[in-house]
């Protein structure tokens, strides 16, 4: 997959450069690109280590559980079937709380075990039910409380605008999440009818 990405982008660019005579620029870019990736990653490691550490502290002192309790009444409206039949409620709420905080290495295993339980109630069929699709959509576009990676990258490039981006990110990710939920519910209703 990524090999194809690399192949297509590089080959097409190099063929194009033969026509517009930019091969000398490409030679410099190849040499500079590889070393640039190391300098960027190194300058990013500090912020990745720090924020991952902070998030792990929050996780260990039970913030996911507290957030889950707050979110539970709201999620009842989003996953009506799962809550009615009491399937995988703990996993779903914990997964979405972890997604809110951006702790993706905690969110993915929770989501996978929730998917498994939802599939069990589905008699292990190969068809997705509306609750499963809702969980996937929330995994794709979830509210982002702490965009630490993006801010870290921006800081590595000496950006002037860093923390000021948090509010637009909250608005954008929140709106996308609400849109995803509404779309899922509407399409789920149509699916139930058929």
């Amino acid at each position: 997959m990524l090999g194809k990405c690399f192949g297509i982008i590089s080959c097409v660019s190099i063929i194009y450069s033969f026509f517009v005579n930019t091969t000398s620029e490409i030679s410099t870019a190849i040499l500079a690109g590889a070393s640039k990736s190391v300098t960027i990653t190194l300058s990013l490691l500090g912020s990745m280590a720090f924020w991952n550490g902070i998030l792990n502290v929050l996780k260990d002192c039970g913030i996911i559980k507290k957030l889950s309790n707050i979110l539970k009444p709201i999620l009842k409206l989003v996953f009506p079937n799962a809550f009615k039949n009491d399937i995988a409620i703990e996993e779903i709420t914990a997964c979405i709380s972890a997604n809110f905080l951006g702790i993706s290495n905690a969110a993915t295993p929770l989501a996978l075990s929730a998917m498994k339980k939802l599939n069990e109630s589905n008699n292990f069929s190969d068809r997705a039910n509306p609750d499963m699709i809702m969980l996937v959509i929330l995994g794709c576009s979830c509210f982002n409380l702490l965009p630490s990676t993006v801010l870290g990258i921006r800081n590595a490039f000496n950006a002037q605008i860093t923390y000021q981006l948090i509010i637009p990110i909250w608005i954008c990710s929140g709106t996308c999440m609400i849109l995803g939920i509404l779309l899922c519910r509407i399409l789920g209703k149509l699916y139930d009818k058929n």
């Binding site: 690399f6 590089s10 660019s13 870019a29 500079a32 690109g33 590889a34 990736s37 960027i40």
Partner: peptide
């Protein structure tokens, strides 16, 4: 880093070629 290394090179080629 290994992924980034390969892809940063190809992105650099992409923008340097003028494509």
């Amino acid at each position: 880093l290994p992924t980034m290394c390969a892809l940063t090179v190809s992105i650099s080629i992409f923008s340097a070629s003028g494509l």
